[in-house]
Design a protein around this nucleic acid. Structure first.
Lengths: 219, 219, 219, 219
DNA sequence: GATGAATGAGTTTTCATTCAT
DNA sequence: GATGAATGAAAACTCATTCAT
C-alpha cells in the first residue's frame, strides 16, 4: 500500500514546516520577530534560506505558522478536555486547566501572539482572532450552562471568559514572576478559584470545594 | 533670579524629549516600533532627525522614553489616588481605579510595553521591571493591610496584585472587545469586584457593597 | 537497418531541445528573458528542471537556441524562396517576402534578438552576427546582380540590404502600429517598393510595376 | 537675490539625477539593464546606493530617467531644427537630420529603448510611447505638407514617417556596421534620399537635388 | 543648536544550478 | 535518463546614524 507522490510531498511539507515552526519558536522566545533574520532562522532549523522559502511564502508566514500552531493546540486540547463531564463547572475547570497547560507548553509562542499580532496583515489577524474567539466561546458557553444549572450567579459571561483567558496567558507573560513559585496546575487551580468564587452561589460552595475552594484554604 | 545656562539646557531638553515622546506615542499606536522610522518620527514631531539624535542616544532610547513615561505616570498617579483613605480597601479600590485610568490614557503605550519589551537591552529591561514592581508593590502592601484589618482572607497577595495589574492592562490588550461595551470606570469596578469578592470576609460584604458588590448585582 | 544508440540519443536530444525552444518562445513573447525562470520554462515545456539542464548548458543556452532557431529559419527559407527565378529583381522580391514572413512567424523571437543580444557572451554573439550576415549577404548579392543586369542604379548595396533587413524587423518592433493596418504581405510589398523605387532605372519601372509600383499607385 | 531652500534642493536633485542618468547610460551601453546592479550604478556614479534611492523610486525609475532623457532630446531638438524653413521638404530634411544627430549623441540610450522598453510598467511605457509619437507626429505633418505643396506623391505618411524613424534608430542598432563606413551626416542624407526619392514628384527632382539626389549620384 | 543629505551595513527574497533518488 | 528538493550567492531596497553646513 504505497502512498502516492503527493502524499510524500505533503508529508515532507508538514515535516519541514514543523522544523521551521520549532526553530522560529526557539529564536522568537529570546528575540523579537524583527530581530530574527530569516537567515538565522534557516541556520537554527539546519536548512538553507531557499528551503525555508519553499515552504513559506514570506517572513510573515512564519509568524502565522507559529501562531496558528498555538491556536490549533487550544482548539484541539480544550474541547477534548471538556468531554465526558456531566457537571458544567467540572467541565469548565477541566477546560481551563487544559488551556493553561497549552499556555505552559508554548510559553514563547503565547508571548509572541501578544507581541507580534500587530505585525500580521489584516486578514491573517482576523483569522487569528476568530481562532481565539472559537476557544473563548467554549468557555462562554460553559459559564452560561453553569448559570442555567444554578451553580453560578447571573453575570457577564463574556468578560469572565476573557478574564480566564487573560489569566491563563499571564502564566506566560509574567512567567518570570510565577514560574519559580508554583506549578502550572497549582496556578490553574488558583486562578480558577479567583474567578469562580466571585460568582458562585453561596449554597453550592461546599459541593465544589475541590474546584473553587476559598482561596484562604487553598494552601 | 536668572537660571544658569545649564538650567536652560535642561529645560529645553525636557521640552524636546516630550515632543519626541508625544510623536512616538502617536506613531506607535498605529504601527509597531520597528515599522516606525526615525525619519517618520522626526517629521511627526516637526523637527529634524539630527535634532532627535541630539536628545536621544538610540532608537531604543525613544522606546525607553515612551515606556518610562507610562511607568512614571503609574508611579505618580497611583500613590496620589491612594492618599487620604483610612480604610485599606477604599485605598486599594482608589489605587486600582487610578491604575486603570492611566492604562486608558496611554493605551498604545501599554500595548507597546508588552510588544517591545524584548527589544530593550538587558539593563533597560530591568529598569522597567523595577518601576513596574514598585507600583505593584503598593497594591501588595495594601492587600496585606486589608488582611491585617480583617477585611480580606489570608491569601497570596503577590499573585492577586499581579492579577489586578494584568486585568488593568487587559483593558488595553483587549480593547477591541471591551471598548465598545463599557467605560473604563465600569471596567475598573467590575474587575475589582471579581478579584476582591474572591477573598473578602463574609461578614464585611455588606459594608463594602459599594466597592465589591457581588457581580450579579453590579448592573 | 537499426540506428545505433547514438542516433537514438541525438534524436531524443533534438526532440527535447525543440520542446525547450517552443516553451521558451511562448514564455519570452509575454515576458523578458530575465523575467522567465528556468522553473517556469520547465513547467511550460512539461518537463522537469533537471531534464532541461540535461539538454542545455546554461540559461543563456536557451536564449541561444531560440535565436538560432530564427536565424536558421531565415537561412533555410530565404534561399529557398529565391530559387527558380531568372530575373534578379524577382528573386530579390521573393527573398525579401520570405524574410518578412519569417519575421511575422517569429515576432517574439525577433524582438528577443534585439532585446537580449547584450545578454549573450562574446562568441555566442558573433555566431549570431555571422548567421545574420549570411542571410543579408544573399540580399547584397542579389542587389549587385540587379545592378549588373541594368535594373538598378549603382548604389551602396550593403546599406540597402541592411535597410531591407531593418524594415523587415520593423514589422515586429512596431507591430503595435502596423499589425492592425495591413497584412504582412502588403507590408512586404510596400517596403520593398520604398527601397527599390529609390534606385530603379527610369527605363524599367514599367516592366517591374508589379513589384515596385510607385507608392502613390500601390493602393 | 538668494534662491530659497527648495530651489537649492531642486537644483541638487537635478544634478544628482543627471549623475545617475550618466552613470546608467555608461553601464547600460555595455551590459543589459538586468545585468546592471544598483550597487554598480552607485559606484559608477561615485555615490552610495542610499543616495541613488533618495532621488529615484525604483531601479525601473532609473531606466525611465534614461529613456526620458533621450525622448526629451528628440522633443527639444527636432522642432527647433524644423523652425525657420518655408519649404516643407527642407523642413523635413532638417528635422530628420536633427533626429539622427540625437540618435548619434545617445547611441547607448537608443539601443536601450529597444531592449528594455518591455521592462517598463504599463503607464511608464505609454508615457514613452506618447513622447515618441509626438516627435514622429512632426514628421507625419511635414510629409503631408509636402504632398499638399505638390512636392511628394500622395502616400501613407504614417508608414514613411516610421520608416524614417526606424532608419534613424538603425544608426544605433547596427552601428557596428555603419559606424566605420560613414559619418552620421552622410548617413542621414543617404537614408533621407532613400525614402524621399521613392515618393518625390518627377518634376521637382532637379530642384531638390541637394536634398534627395538620386542615390547613384550621392557619392 | 538645528538641519537633512549622505552613508552602507543588513534584510528579505529570488532563482540558476546541482545531485541524490 | 528523469525528477524536483535543496542550495546559497546575489540582488533590490531600507533606515539608523553621522556630520558638514
Amino acid at each position: 500500500m504505497t502512498a502516492g507522490p503527493e502524499a510524500v510531498r505533503a508529508a515532507r511539507g508538514e515535516w519541514r514546516r514543523s522544523q521551521i515552526v520549532d526553530a522560529a519558536t526557539a529564536l522568537l522566545s529570546t528575540q523579537g520577530y524583527h530581530q530574527m533574520s530569516v537567515n538565522d532562522l534557516a541556520q537554527e532549523a539546519g536548512i538553507s534560506v531557499g528551503t525555508v522559502y519553499q515552504y513559506v511564502k514570506n517572513k510573515e508566514d512564519i509568524l502565522l505558522l507559529v501562531m496558528r500552531d498555538i491556536l490549533e493546540a487550544y482548539r484541539h486540547n480544550v474541547p477534548r478536555a471538556m468531554e465526558g463531564f456531566d457537571d458544567p463547572l467540572d467541565r469548565l475547570s477541566s477546560g481551563f486547566g487544559a488551556y493553561c497547560r497549552v499556555v505552559d507548553s508554548r510559553r514563547a509562542g503565547t508571548i509572541l501572539a501578544y507581541r507580534e499580532s500587530s505585525t500580521l496583515a489584516k486578514d491573517a489577524l482576523s483569522e487569528m482572532k476568530s481562532l481565539e474567539e472559537e476557544t473563548t466561546g467554549l468557555l462562554v458557553t460553559c459559564l452560561r450552562e453553569c448559570v442555567e444549572a444554578g451553580i453560578l450567579h447571573e453575570h457577564d459571561s463574556d468578560t469572565l471568559a476573557w478574564d480566564l483567558t487573560m489569566l491563563a496567558h499571564m502564566w506566560s507573560l509574567k512567567h518570570w514572576h510565577f514560574g519559580s513559585r508554583m506549578s502550572i496546575d497549582e496556578y490553574a487551580r488558583l486562578q480558577f478559584a479567583v474567578v469562580v468564587s466571585a460568582i458562585i452561589h453561596q449554597e453550592v460552595t461546599t459541593r465544589y470545594e475541590y474546584l473553587a475552594r476559598p482561596l484562604h484554604r487553598l494552601r
